[in-house]
Structures are given as C-alpha cells and as structure tokens.
Amino acid sequence: MAETLAPSSSPNTGNTLGEGDHGPEGTKRDFLKLVAGSFAAVGVGAIVWPFIHSMNPAKDVLALASTDVPLSHIAEGQAVTVMWRGKPVFVRHRTAAEIQEAKAVPLGELRDPQPDSARIQREPWLVVLGVCTHLGCVPLGQKPTDARGDFGGWFCPCHGSHYDTSGRIRRGPAPSNLAVPDYAFTSDTQIRIG
C-alpha cells in the first residue's frame, strides 16, 4: 500500500497525533484522554493475566499424588528410581563404605558445601532428585553396570558432571548438589515423597 506517500496536507489532517490543542478546551480533552487511556491500559493489563496464569500448573497438576516408596526390597548397595512429579527420584541403599566416604570429605573441597548429615534423614538411605543440576539430564549410576564417575556416586553423561555418594557435585560443569526432595518416613520400611 503506497510506500512512498508522505502524509497529505489537507486542512483536516494536521494536528492529529498528539500535538494537542491549546487553551482550556485542549487541556480538558488531554486530561480526559489521559484518564481514559490509563483506564484502558489497566484493562488490557488485567486481560493479560488470566492468559499467563493459565500456563501455570493447573489445580490437578498441583494436587498430584505423592509417591510411596517401599524400601524393604532394596538391598544394600542397590538403588531404585521412582517417578515423582514426572521426574526420577533416586533412592539408594548405601553401603557402610559409601557412607564413610561421604562423611569423610572435607567441606572445603566441595563446590556446594553441605555435610552428608544435612542430606539424609535416616541411614543408610539417600534420596535425591535424579536430575543433573547442570542442564537437566538424568545421571548414570543407578544400575550396578553403570559408570558411577570418579567419586562413586553418579556420573552425568551429557556434560560430564561427577557426583559423590552423597549426591554432591565434585567435578564437571554442574553448579550444585543433586537436590533432596521433601520426603518423610511413613514407617521403618516406607517413605512418602512429596
């Protein structure tokens, strides 16, 4: 549509884009315009919110069931992976040696210093979110045949992060330790995550 035409110069066409009239009439109109314009802007803002909020987790998603994990069948040295909120949770029955190793590390050597005792509720169980804190891959180390990295915990194959037997980051690009989800022991042999 007519790329090169400049605004025409008909007498009616000047004074249209906000130059405003002068005198008391003009001020009154400008004030009215300002009020009406602000009102309309508030309205548009209010319309945007329901759309944005509709993308937040819905009520049924928020109410998602917590996950019960029976522990009795997890032998020492073994680990299971369970699904919680669409993500893997690692539940590991650590050996005495592994616990010893986790406790012995001086905090100064850690990138994200946290004592082992702050990461567990009851020995020998370690429960961590199986999501690498670098970019969200699932680290290896759950199966006996998996590579567990240089520190005997988990090893993320995506970008080479090594986690120790407490799920703490020891080497590689990940910035922090594997997260510990909210969980509670519902009995001696069962935990409920979430």
Partner: peptide
C-alpha cells in the same frame, strides 16, 4: 521500511 508512514496514511490521516 515505511511502516510508520503507512500506518499514518492508512489509520492516521486516512480521509
């Protein structure tokens, strides 16, 4: 890219 001229012509001064 005279979009502003076009808007001015089609929705501003458009007779």
């Amino acid at each position: 890219m005279p979009v502003f001229t076009m808007l001015q012509k089609e929705y501003g001064t458009f007779p």
